[in-house]
Amino acid sequence: MNIDSIKNGIVIDHIAAGRGMKLYRLLNLDALDCTVALIKNVGSRKMEKKDIIKIDADIDVNMDILGYVDQNVTVNIIRDGEIVEKKQIALPERLTNVICCKNPRCITSTEQELPHIFRLTDAQNGVYRCLYCETQAEKTAE
């Protein structure tokens, strides 16, 4: 399978196999007009299999979402066909409107206008909890 290399844009590489689609959805890539490629189950030297997303436009990607879904991804910024920048990903301290609280007793369940905010409460285990009710978010791997 051959995907044209991009001139100006972003390549999100080394996504754990199976999480590419989740990233695609959370990053709202279906709303873009430019060419976007989601490549699944690519053979890789570093990993058994990986997913790759290529975006043929110089857009701002929400790094918090990347960090939350998979902090091992690499982000390459491409200009004129060359990698000009590799971005480091870290677990974000706060996630705003990335995931929703599912606790039916949480204030966010009745007040729709409230932003859904999650805080990183345990960096070692990547645990996020709802700012309002402290319910733990589901692990990203699932």
């Binding site: 007793r105 204030i107 007040e111 409230l114 700012l131 309002y132």
Partner: peptide, 25 residues
């Protein structure tokens, strides 16, 4: 009765808010 409601109040009030109980939280 909703968990986190007093926090929402504190984030929006210009005076101190004391949580007098938010559900089972």
């Amino acid at each position: 009765p909703k968990e986190g409601a007093p926090l929402v109040a504190a984030m929006n009030a210009s005076i101190p808010v004391i949580n007098a109980g938010d559900g089972g939280h």
